[in-house]
């Protein structure tokens, strides 16, 4: 469902395929584990084709918990359609969203 790589002292989580309630929960739990070792995690949406409100809820919860633990969550490389979902829900104001992986790594 996702691959993880470390670059420039940050972990990048490459999400694949679909973000729904089930995969979103798995993603959240894994990222929370990663946050035990590192302060900044970048979620790459490059290969995400499908996403629904249950998946979004898990990502909101992940952000809430990361803020509570003083960790930083960044999102990047969304297709126009996925980005539209974030703007539709106003969540583009809540998350740090970057156009490219390199911008998110800065």
């Amino acid at each position: 469902m996702f691959d993880v790589e470390e670059k420039a002292g940050k972990k990048i989580v490459y999400i694949k395929g679909e973000v729904n309630g089930e995969t979103g929960l798995e993603l959240k739990n894994n990222v929370l584990e990663i946050f035990k070792q590192i302060d900044t995690v970048i979620l790459s949406f490059k290969n995400v084709i499908y996403m629904n409100s249950s998946g979004l809820r898990e990502i909101i919860d992940l952000l809430k918990r990361s803020k509570r633990d003083k960790k930083e969550l960044r999102l990047c490389e969304m297709s126009g359609d996925i980005r539209d979902m974030f703007s539709f829900t106003g969540l583009d104001k809540v998350f740090q969203i970057f156009d490219s992986e390199s911008a998110a790594l800065r």
């Binding site: 629904n52 249950s54 979902m85 539709f88």
Partner: peptide, 9 residues
């Protein structure tokens, strides 16, 4: 339609 699409069940 937008809301239903986001629910996606």
């Amino acid at each position: 339609i937008q809301a239903l699409t986001l629910i996606n069940d």
